[in-house]
Design a binder for these strands. Sequence first.
DNA 1: CGATTCCATAAAGATTTCATAAAGACGAAA
DNA 2: TTTCGTCTTTATGAAATCTTTATGGAATCG
Lengths: 229, 229
Amino acid sequence: MSVKNTIVVIDDEAQIRKVLSITLEASDYKVVEADCAKDGILQAATAHPQLVILDIGLPDRDGFSVIKELRTWTSIPIIILSVRNSEEDIVKALDLGADDYLTKPFNSSELLARIRASIRRTQQPSEENVISTGDLKIDYSSRVVTKNKKEIKLTNTEYLLLALLFKNMGKVLTHGFILREIWGPSSTENSQYLRVFIGQIRKKIEDDHADPKYITTESGVGYRMRFVK
Amino acid sequence: MSVKNTIVVIDDEAQIRKVLSITLEASDYKVVEADCAKDGILQAATAHPQLVILDIGLPDRDGFSVIKELRTWTSIPIIILSVRNSEEDIVKALDLGADDYLTKPFNSSELLARIRASIRRTQQPSEENVISTGDLKIDYSSRVVTKNKKEIKLTNTEYLLLALLFKNMGKVLTHGFILREIWGPSSTENSQYLRVFIGQIRKKIEDDHADPKYITTESGVGYRMRFVK
DNA sequence: CGATTCCATAAAGATTTCATAAAGACGAAA
DNA sequence: TTTCGTCTTTATGAAATCTTTATGGAATCG
């Protein structure tokens, strides 16, 4: 279940705010309304919105100055609404940092599509993919393993093997399974070089590799990665 | 001295292409023209543009399918031009991944402002336009790389490659990923010329290129840009 | 307990991958 | 067209990695 995206609507006409709210809420956005520039900026700062819809014609302040002020501290997308379809206004708004410009009366499905496009752009990948045990940590997105925050240099095969063990933390992985996963289905059942690699990895990650605490041997079966507090 | 931003214009009407070229070149963009979808995609993959302008009505293929195909491998901004001001088309284009939609006849200063807005956004995601590591610094807004405040002369491809590494500082980038990002989806899996370029860049940025501290090799995997204090 | 199988490690050989130079191809600009 | 800068390809030796072999120690089982 995803959390709803919040949109701040800054417009002095109650009618327009109402139409926008209904439209946006029907598309599963959370809407925060503001009827003047001052309140709009406050809401933008406190409601943590994913987008701002701003009417350029406000009673208390020039809408362009609102764009300017917002851009001093945030880069969330701003879509401008205006009754004026003047080239000059469009250029000014966009160059001040607005992301899009629509003229009233606007088409609601076009507005929604432009909102989706703007939000899509800001939601670029930033997901971290990290698993840790003891003082060991693996980061799949950057493909780096650290021990005590210090990076450990691993060859490609060593990394693949360690990543496989991490992903199956606590489970016993049989020799056959590991060999098939890393060396492909046509790999021989010879687990000799698996031992060589486990040995290499242990040298690099275990404090005492005569008594390994991370990768334990399950004699006759395979290996297991242990979760260490 | 900053390198010009490149824009690929895909339109079958020579007249429109000419007008666009003149307009864009007057604003200091480098323009690459294509008169059909096939050539357009090729140019988008090889010319390393910062933006694509796409006419939705092309002779050889549906423009929507071009958006779709481009979006399988690149996230550079796409601005759609169309004679049809239909809500349906706008929504479809934006949801397929286009960044903006303008109807012909378009206003050239509005188009330029929308281009600036789109390019600005792509050069922003790292929050700052400048990233540095050690005595190296990259400025995305001016496309300039400096070492000890001294500018380093880079070819376009070298810049793109270095910028990609900077943007993913600390992450291991696989050969395949780098090749797709820089040379497009049709690039071969041959990483030989990637090595050549890495070699060139190292000559320019590393103090001792027998022992590189900025760009390290992850044998069998790819390369990584390191953060140096 | 033996005997047997399984495991850990070192080290040598085989293979893959990498760095670099240099030559050819290509395209943009004069 | 020619020139120049850049990109692509090819070739070569070096480096890193993987695989195999050998040896002795540990675990397992009758």
